[in-house]
């Protein structure tokens, strides 16, 4: 149990550091700048299944606020992470394996790569579309929101799966 908590803290610190120091410096391919690597939502996705729902929502809010301070966009990332922390519960219920979540850890190691891939893809996609909608704050830029979401989604998901397969965490 304690190991689960410490592993989650280490993971959160590690991913947040990568996000605000490395991934914030974006790869802009000339005039094509729709790819923004945004991977920190996986922290919230991978909190253990048995944690209190309300606690997870507050943790999500804190994570988003932390990222916001570095992105100069107070409220935008926090809004998106609070949203996915809330809907996480329903997604997990909907995706529940037939034998239930035995080990409480939501990792590829425990639940298999295909399950983990689907789950993370859903979470990242919801996070990104909510994030870019909040950032534009109106649907005038609908085309931009959609393009950004799609391209960032593919790149971020690829990076997350890559990291997950390399480290292959147990907890």
């Amino acid at each position: 149990m304690n190991k689960q908590v410490t592993r989650n803290i280490i993971r959160a610190v590690f991913i947040l550091a990568i996000q605000v120091i490395l991934l914030k410096r974006n790869l802009t391919l000339g005039e094509f700048n729709y790819v923004h690597l945004t991977v920190y939502s996986v922290i919230i996705a991978m909190f253990p299944y048995n944690w209190n729902r309300t606690l997870i929502i507050f943790l999500g809010f804190a994570t988003g606020l932390f990222v916001d301070i570095f992105y100069d966009s107070i409220g935008v990332h926090a809004g998106a992470t609070t949203f996915i922390a809330y809907v996480r519960y329903y997604i997990l219920n909907w995706m529940s394996p037939t034998e239930g979540y035995k080990k409480d850890s939501l990792t590829a190691y425990q639940l298999g790569v295909p399950w983990f891939f689907t789950y993370v893809a859903i979470m990242i996609f919801l996070h990104l579309i909510f994030l870019y909608s909040l950032e534009a704050f109106s649907f005038v830029y609908l085309k931009e929101i959609i393009l950004r979401t799609i391209f960032s989604f593919i790149a971020s998901l690829f990076l997350v799966m890559f990291g997950s397969l390399i480290f292959n965490p147990k907890y």
């Binding site: 929502i57 409220g75 935008v76 809004g79 609070t82 949203f83 809330y86 519960y89 909040l134």
Partner: peptide, 22 residues
């Protein structure tokens, strides 16, 4: 309903922050 309430309150805080910040 603590989860839903927490979600609602925090989301409202976020909106306030965004609008205020803009």
């Amino acid at each position: 309903f603590s989860a839903f309430l927490a979600f609602l309150v925090l989301e409202l805080i976020c909106f306030y922050l965004i609008v205020n910040y803009n």
